[in-house]
Design a protein around this nucleic acid. Structure first.
Lengths: 353, 353
DNA sequence: GTGAAAGCGCTAACAT
DNA sequence: ATGTTAGCGCTTTCAC
């Protein structure tokens, strides 16, 4: 039996000041590199700080600080149940938690099917001269240009969900999309020897310049090709808006291809298969999807799909904005620039709790 | 394109006091039910609070508060790499984070093979008269008695990792062990039709009055029995200390039972199988274990085991202590008493990040 | 360059 | 039962 006590020896600026033989304000100047301190004094102070192992009291500095920070976030518009809704909820939650810390957050919702809408949001943001901008990559080219402008205006920016690697972002929060896709493929195929797989995609992927899930899809298909060279991947396009058509298309495909039992969707909308899956049960079928949208979880619970690769969208967004806020508050001293979010596997059995 | 701004209208006690026509102290009395307030005044104040949607500034109250809280934690002694080390790390991390908040934490390490050691720790804790005690159930009977004493001394206590249901604990943080075991069984058997399973246990389970993983094991065996009535579960006992013997025992068993390909351990030490698994590869073999000990993760990475059911031990302990600290700080107003920790599935593919 | 001092919103001790 | 007031440790303004 032994006992270990964890308390903090709490030194204050006054302690440091006394020890260094200077005024409290001088300690503050050194701490935050505000200048107006002679080299000699600076050294004395640094020595005292080190010797006392002084760390500022966050509550006190918070309370005394008058500086306000403004963060702008770019989020696609969404309808209830869509992927971006969860993300938006995470951002709102974080924004609320940080509002007592002198941080205000402006959410800019743009239409992800309309470049101009995005461009307009960017313009508004630049005009508002925020302290920081948080965004994800929807229109890669525009985003790149926008980030350049932010840099030349000395505005910090952070990516969430996905990113452009060679830019000067402050923070990234998100998964490794390629690995994400590979994990989905593993889940679909492990302990099986698939000859055919149905990969169901959204028709809009064809229209769009950018498909936000492209990297994930490549991870998925690469894994299949590597592990099962003889496996054929059938690609089927559906339109999220046309529920009836989806059913038709799927019925048509699976009637013509009765030997296909492996089904995957690499976007977040595997729940779109619900009607078909309900109507045509198949004990041999394995369905894997991505992201923990409520509708997807319902499908899992109902036993319509096997498993989901998931990344706590809301938590990811919450953490992304929170880290960015901390980053701005703490004078841009962060340890990690990239925060790779953990991928989770959800099955019927670990769905709840 | 649209924009939504999240800022806080920050009202203070003074605002509330002015609006209610009373002094700041009176507002404080109402806020924290300190008494000495007439019913009439109380109502006025409550009305003002509601109208302004006032919430106290946490930094300010933190800073002004003089009350110190002391929390005692009961943790089994451990050697590097053992389950309790991770838990201890989580507690230490949380304790450090909360030390600026007037909270000091004492960690009591006892020998989990020695009841007396545990009893002594309990005595020391009672003598130190802490504000709260955090513990998990190792010796159920002693724990029950100890908790009674805590109650009669008006000391709050919280369980982590596991709990005794009918006690008056303030908070519980941990998994649903039974479900945890079922998930492991699912992982081991999904897409297969097992006729035989090897369940490897620790010999100490037999000696101990309590087996901390009993509930989990029951979840595991129940799932197998429900889903595969014809499946035979072989139980094999090994001694964690005797590496050579483990190898012998396993070699012996699997030579005699070559048809067994499903292996599970419901405690945290599946890594004990490492030598055997390395020496006798079997492509048909499926191995499932629990808990993300470093050694277990290494086995996963090496491909020796298939998957792990995991619950972020360190994070769980961190959250458990943090919630308890918040609970004590915030005058015991918590929404949830039980925090069921999410179970995760770890495979080679989502091991890192 | 450096120091003194006011005040952030709250708690707690004291006064009435 | 209610009000007054002195800090908590820090930031920030202003004076030297």
């Amino acid at each position: 039996m032994s006992m270990q006590l964890i308390t903090n020896e709490t030194y204050t600026v006054s302690d440091v000041a006394k020890k260094a033989g200077v005024a409290r304000a001088t300690v503050d100047r050194v701490l935050f590199n505000r200048g107006y301190v002679s080299q000699k004094t600076r050294e004395k102070v640094l020595k005292a700080i080190k010797e006392l192992d002084y760390t500022p009291n966050a509550s006190a500095s918070q309370l005394a600080s008058k500086k306000k920070y403004r963060i702008a976030c770019l989020v696609p518009q969404f309808r209830p149940g869509e992927y971006w809704e969860e993300m938006n909820n995470g951002l709102v939650a974080s924004a609320k938690d940080y509002s007592p810390h002198n941080i205000s957050v402006a959410l800019y919702h743009f239409d992800q099917n309309d470049e101009e809408s995005f461009v307009n949001s960017c313009k508004s943001i630049l005009e508002s001269k925020p302290d920081g901008v948080m965004l994800s990559v929807v229109f890669p080219d525009i985003v790149a240009t926008f980030c350049q402008e932010l840099e030349s205006n000395n505005i910090q920016y952070a990516f969430m969900d996905n990113k452009i690697d060679n830019l000067n972002y402050s923070i990234y929060h998100g998964i490794d999309s390629y690995k994400n896709g590979r994990l989905g493929a593993w889940l679909l195929t492990t302990r099986t020897d698939p000859k055919e797989i149905a990969l169901i995609r959204l028709r809009r992927d064809m229209r769009h310049k950018s498909d936000p899930n492209r990297t994930r899809r490549h991870g998925f298909t690469d894994y299949i090709e590597d592990s099962f060279p003889d496996c054929r991947i059938h690609t089927i396009f559906i339109d999220p808006e046309k529920t009836d058509e989806i059913l038709e298309i799927l019925e048509d495909f699976f009637t013509k291809n009765p030997s296909v039992h492996h089904i995957a969707m690499t976007n977040s909308r595997v729940f779109l298969l619900r009607d078909f899956l309900r109507k045509h049960p198949d004990p041999k079928r394995i369905v894997v999807g991505f992201d923990d949208l409520k509708n997807n979880l319902d499908c899992l619970r109902e036993g319509l799909i096997d498993s989901l690769v998931v990344r706590h969208i809301k938590k990811q967004a919450y953490n992304a904005l929170s880290s960015f806020a901390e980053y701005l508050l703490r004078n841009n001293k962060t340890k990690h620039m990239n925060h790779f979010v953990h991928m989770e596997i959800l099955t019927k059995l670990n769905l709840d709790n």
